[in-house]
């Protein structure tokens, strides 16, 4: 029983890092990234390939998040008109292209066979029996560091400019703020986190293949962020936990009541879709909206 609790705790930790990154892009910078899974995959494959080639795990994690961050910045190129809709469409397409590259460039990625035997960090130094707990602790330590770093960033001058850009694009433009480069930086920072989460995912499961990175993952991450609340980074963890528990609840429910697996699989996603729509309509800022004064612009001091 401890094993499965640790397993879900670790998974929630990994997705929390990704959700914080996505929430930063969406909630703080006002950018739509419908291709989250692509950046997640980049982080996973970069770190997986490097460590399989002999690099230490820490270098893999670092490289995984850096490459994902860089690609995030690159998607800005075709969408210089700053149109949020074009960003969204481009990210969907990019995630698809990334998946196709993973699938087709066998010489690099082993295609559909996936990467086998990705090393787990800590396994060498932690005594047997405590390894899963140690990995879980590592994930959560990284999650907390990411959260604190982003909070610092949000309350910095850069964070205030970001918010200005989000709220009043035209106003920020007319004030002479370099809106485009600010958005690119915000995308890159979010991408770093999503890539790091992907890298951790690879090292935790030790096997990844393109089948891990289907478009559904993107939608599930969006549901996590929407439930947590737009712009409220800390609450993302609640969204992640709620969605993870919900998606797995039917596994345990079906042992009690007989349920048709096909119907259940569809209904699970119907509920996730309904939830996203209901939040947009009734609670546009999520169940735990960002506290306005915490991010107040101008000279109002942040804090209470």
């Amino acid at each position: 029983m401890t094993d499965i609790v640790l397993y879900f705790a670790t998974m929630i930790g990994i997705y929390t890092i990704a959700a914080i990154g996505l929430n930063f892009q969406y909630g703080i910078a006002g950018l739509i990234n419908f291709g989250v899974v692509g950046f997640f995959a980049i982080g996973a494959y970069t770190s997986g390939l490097l460590t399989l080639a002999g690099a230490p795990v820490w270098a893999g994690l670092l490289a995984g998040s850096l490459v994902a961050g860089m690609v995030s910045a690159l998607i800005a190129l075709p969408t210089q008109r700053l149109n949020v809709h074009y960003w969204a469409i481009t990210t969907v397409g990019l995630a698809e292209v990334i998946r196709l590259i993973l699938l087709n460039e066998d010489w690099l990625t082993r295609g559909s066979f996936g990467l086998v035997g990705i090393p787990r960090p800590l396994d060498a130094i932690v005594p047997a029996g405590y390894q899963t707990a140690a990995f879980c602790a590592l994930v959560w330590a990284l999650a907390v560091i990411c959260y604190l770093a982003l909070r610092l960033l949000v309350s910095s001058p850069f964070g205030r400019v970001l918010k200005a850009v989000r709220e009043e694009n035209d106003l920020a433009l007319s004030l002479g703020k370099p809106v485009f480069s600010i958005k690119v930086r915000a995308l890159a920072i979010g991408g770093l986190l999503i890539g790091l989460a992907g890298a951790l995912y690879a090292h935790y499961l030790t096997f990844i293949s393109p089948a891990d990175f289907l478009p559904t993952v993107t939608i599930i991450m969006w549901a996590m962020v929407m439930i947590g609340g737009r712009g409220n980074l800390a609450a993302s963890v609640v969204g992640v936990a709620v969605v993870t528990v919900f998606l797995n609840s039917t596994r345990f429910l079906k042992d009690v009541i007989a349920l048709d697996p096909q119907m259940i699989a569809s209904l699970r996603m119907v509920v996730i879709g309904l939830l996203i729509m209901a939040i947009v309509v009734y609670r546009p800022d999520g169940l735990f909206p960002e506290r306005k004064k915490e991010f107040a612009d101008g000279d109002t001091p942040a804090g209470r």
Binding site: Y26, G30, L31, I32, F34, V84, H85, A88, I219, W222, A223, M226, Q262, M263, A265, S266, L267, R268, M269, V270, I272, G273, L274, L275, I276, M277, V280, V281, P284
Partner: peptide, 27 residues
């Protein structure tokens, strides 16, 4: 219900809708 909401909210709504419709058909 969200006619006057900013574009990005509508985008997210349509993404949720897409998941919903596809899986209603699947169900």
């Amino acid at each position: 219900r969200v006619r006057t909401a900013p574009g990005l909210v509508l985008l997210v709504a349509s993404m949720g809708l897409s998941l919903f419709l596809k899986n209603v058909v699947g169900a």
